[in-house]
Design a protein around this nucleic acid. Structure first.
Ligand SMILES: [Mn+2]
Ligand SMILES: [Mn+2]
Ligand SMILES: [Mn+2]
Ligand SMILES: [Mn+2]
Lengths: 217, 217
DNA sequence: TAATTTTTTTAGATTAGTCTAAATTTTTTA
DNA sequence: TAAAAAATTTAGACTAATCTAAAAAAATTA
């Protein structure tokens, strides 16, 4: 049985490892976990001891197979709880993350399997992120950013790469929700903002900053 | 914000205080929390410091108004989660307690209010125990034990005073569920076991040990 | 490549919550 | 009511997780 803290480190290492072969640095971990590098060094020793990470001093860390499996099980729980909060309790997608941050550490396999069934075996969380299965396996979808779509193309909004409440609330106000159809009319030469036609009914100007964080297919 | 441990102590003091004016003893707390008396003494000092208990060395403890309010809020969360687990996730009443023991510490007022609404504002948990309101107030019902009911009387099963999985599973096997009608036919002179007519359809012999732990009205 | 800067680790403390063993207080018993 | 027993508290230690400051290693720069 691992502590909340250990589970959070594993999850953080997992996220920081995405899209890179190199090990995750001590400083990056300290940033993400809101601790100091010294504390991270300490914890890395313990996680290595337990066989959850590959760690050589000064070289950064990667997850072992077991470490990755555990990280994905925590992510599974996090995302399933987010679905529960959004779909059953009517929380906004900007509110679910902080609560799931606590719920993800509840230790009961039966609970999570029953929750999964209760929710109808969802494949994605409220932000469009895929939900790992009970074995700790997760499909990897590769989506493009709206900012990379060429003029004239029509796409579907499938996710976000920024999860802050502020960003998500901004999307709410703009009426941008998962699954909506976006036709890229024009990309401004001046500020790279994107003019999109939403669900064939209305036109919206999306800043480059926002477009960069919208995932589409 | 109080720690899981502090919340558990408050809850335990609350339960051990039921039906007595005297303070709860250090040893009783050590028993209930699976710790040693020395650890309890330490914790009592800290809880007194924070104004949650009335404590004088060697004299036992009682909850302050604030301590009791907090204890009841934890109990509220515990019981609401138990209802969720039993009604929505189909857990047996013998399984919900251990899981609720973890869920009761999730800190989000909005979460618990929304959960309450989702569950339809239940008044009782799966064991027949009343659910405190958001202000930390709980109605106190006084039920009798089946073992105290005189022959010929008909009652309704409203709760249990023993919550162990073994006992609850025993009731399941016997077909004794909350709300069933029990007519006391005869109480044995030999072993005080009770012969009851259940829902007017079948007769069952209930040991004194079981009858003592069945609450009826 | 040698000096400087940055990153990381080690050393030494701190806090919450726990423990055992010893001391103290209260309660019970004779 | 004094001795014995039981209950409780104190003393001193331990672990997990954290910190700051200092030392060491790696990376960058001149
Ligand atoms: Mn999240
Ligand atoms: Mn977490
Ligand atoms: Mn319970
Ligand atoms: Mn608890």
């Amino acid at each position: 049985m691992y502590s909340f803290t250990e589970e959070n480190y594993l999850k953080t290492i997992f996220y920081l490892s995405i899209g890179t072969q190199e090990g995750v640095s001590t400083n990056a971990l300290a940033d993400s976990t809101n601790t100091r590098a010294a504390s991270v060094s300490d914890m890395l020793k313990r996680l290595a001891e337990k066989g959850l990470i590959n760690y050589q001093k000064y070289r950064g860390v990667t997850l072992t197979e077991e470490g990755e499996r555990l990280a994905l099980l925590v992510i599974r729980k996090h995302r399933l709880w987010e679905v529960f909060l959004a779909e059953k309790l009517q929380f906004g997608w900007d509110e679910v993350h902080v609560i799931a941050e606590e719920l993800e550490h509840i230790r009961s396999e039966r609970l999570i399997e029953k929750l999964d069934a209760f929710l109808g075996y969802p494949k994605f969380d409220p932000h469009g992120d895929p939900i790992p299965n009970a074995a700790g396996e997760m499909p990897r979808f590769i989506y493009r950013k709206l900012s990379e779509i060429v003029e004239g193309t029509t796409v579907i909004m499938t996710g976000v790469s920024e999860h802050s409440p502020a960003f998500l609330q901004h999307l709410d106000k703009a009426g941008l929700t998962l699954g909506c159809q976006l036709k890229v009319n024009e990309i401004s030469d001046f500020d790279k903002s994107v003019s999109v036609l939403i669900d064939n009914v209305r036109t919206l100007f999306v800043s480059h900053e926002v477009a960069k964080n919208l995932l589409v297919k």
